[in-house]
Amino acid sequence: MTEAQNIAELLFGPRDPEYQGPLRYNLDFRRVNLTTPVLPDIVEHQDVEWARQLLRAGTLPENPQSPLPDDIILIQDIVRDQLSGYVETDRPRADRLYVLDFQGPRRQYTMFGHSTDLPTRIAEHCQAATPHGYALLGGWASPGVDDAYSMEQVALRLARHEYGWHYRERFYEMPLTTGMNYVRAVFELNSDWRTRNSTAHAAGEL
């Protein structure tokens, strides 16, 4: 059994041998109590959904360098600022897993990655996505660790095994909450987060 299958069965229980398709939306994460922090949304849900529908109905810009609408850029900038809040001030260059939600013409994708410079990496993703009519509408990042590469690879293998439709690290029409569950679970099962979290609780820091 592969590492991804082991984690999948821990999270979701044994797979029905008769079932051949990917598990997509209603995954049961009740088997693992996820405790990594999730920052509250700054942008109102209805504003994000308005932006999503506007972007989904759009078309590839005739001029690949043409900007997104000002309102969409504002929402994207607010989301980027929110994601910067995941960077601990005492460990600004620690490695972090991240999950990002991009919406564009007709398609959405959730992507996984890791970086020791989260704000710059997110800016690079936005810069690459904008010419194709995509904007960042949400995301999550893990607490810092020394090296998140191996955990990123496990998260990607798990998502490919359970979800399916992807191109490299982009998973099309995967809800952000599903991507967050994958990455948070992999992070918590493969890092010292639970030990750190328990120690912080005992010390009254959380």
Score class of each variant (00 low, 15 high):
residue 1 M to Y: 04
residue 5 Q to F: 07
residue 8 A to E: 08
residue 13 G to W: 03
residue 13 G to Q: 03
residue 15 R to C: 02
residue 15 R to Y: 00
residue 16 D to H: 12
residue 16 D to Q: 09
residue 16 D to N: 15
residue 17 P to V: 00
residue 18 E to Y: 00
residue 18 E to N: 00
residue 19 Y to E: 11
residue 19 Y to L: 11
residue 20 Q to C: 05
residue 20 Q to T: 14
residue 21 G to A: 14
residue 24 R to V: 11
residue 25 Y to W: 10
residue 27 L to C: 03
residue 28 D to L: 09
residue 29 F to W: 14
residue 30 R to Q: 04
residue 32 V to A: 11
residue 35 T to I: 01
residue 36 T to Q: 00
residue 36 T to V: 06
residue 36 T to F: 00
residue 37 P to A: 08
residue 38 V to N: 03
residue 38 V to Y: 02
residue 40 P to A: 11
residue 40 P to L: 08
residue 42 I to W: 14
residue 42 I to G: 13
residue 43 V to C: 09
residue 45 H to V: 15
residue 45 H to E: 15
residue 46 Q to G: 03
residue 47 D to A: 10
residue 49 E to S: 05
residue 50 W to F: 14
residue 54 L to Q: 13
residue 55 L to T: 02
residue 56 R to A: 12
residue 56 R to E: 09
residue 58 G to C: 10
residue 58 G to I: 11
residue 59 T to V: 09
residue 59 T to E: 13
residue 60 L to A: 07
residue 61 P to R: 01
residue 61 P to S: 01
residue 61 P to N: 01
residue 64 P to H: 08
residue 65 Q to M: 12
residue 68 L to A: 14
residue 68 L to H: 10
residue 70 D to A: 15
residue 71 D to W: 05
residue 74 L to D: 15
residue 76 Q to S: 15
residue 77 D to R: 15
residue 79 V to C: 07
residue 82 Q to H: 14
residue 82 Q to D: 13
residue 85 G to C: 12
residue 86 Y to S: 05
residue 87 V to R: 03
residue 88 E to F: 07
residue 88 E to Q: 14
residue 88 E to M: 11
residue 90 D to W: 07
residue 91 R to W: 09
residue 91 R to P: 01
residue 94 A to H: 02
residue 96 R to A: 12
residue 97 L to M: 14
residue 97 L to T: 09
residue 98 Y to K: 11
residue 98 Y to I: 10
residue 100 L to G: 02
residue 100 L to M: 05
residue 100 L to S: 04
residue 104 G to L: 08
residue 104 G to P: 08
residue 106 R to G: 01
residue 108 Q to Y: 06
residue 108 Q to D: 06
residue 111 M to L: 15
residue 113 G to Q: 04
residue 113 G to D: 03
residue 114 H to L: 00
residue 114 H to G: 00
residue 114 H to F: 04
residue 114 H to E: 08
residue 115 S to Y: 00
residue 117 D to G: 07
residue 117 D to M: 04
residue 119 P to R: 04
residue 119 P to W: 01
residue 120 T to A: 14
residue 125 H to M: 11
residue 128 A to L: 12
residue 128 A to D: 14
residue 128 A to G: 11
residue 130 T to W: 00
residue 131 P to N: 04
residue 132 H to C: 03
residue 138 G to I: 12
residue 141 A to Y: 08
residue 141 A to S: 14
residue 141 A to N: 07
residue 142 S to K: 06
residue 146 D to W: 06
residue 148 A to M: 11
residue 154 V to Y: 01
residue 157 R to C: 10
residue 159 A to M: 10
residue 161 H to M: 14
residue 162 E to H: 01
residue 165 W to V: 09
residue 167 Y to G: 04
residue 168 R to A: 09
residue 169 E to Y: 06
residue 170 R to Q: 09
residue 171 F to H: 02
residue 172 Y to W: 10
residue 172 Y to A: 01
residue 172 Y to H: 05
residue 173 E to K: 07
residue 175 P to Q: 06
residue 176 L to N: 03
residue 177 T to V: 11
residue 179 G to F: 03
residue 182 Y to W: 10
residue 183 V to T: 15
residue 183 V to F: 05
residue 183 V to H: 04
residue 185 A to M: 04
residue 186 V to N: 02
residue 187 F to D: 02
residue 188 E to R: 00
residue 188 E to V: 01
residue 189 L to Q: 11
residue 193 W to E: 03
residue 193 W to K: 04
residue 194 R to Q: 13
residue 199 T to F: 06
residue 200 A to D: 05
residue 201 H to A: 13
residue 201 H to Y: 05
residue 202 A to N: 03
residue 203 A to F: 11
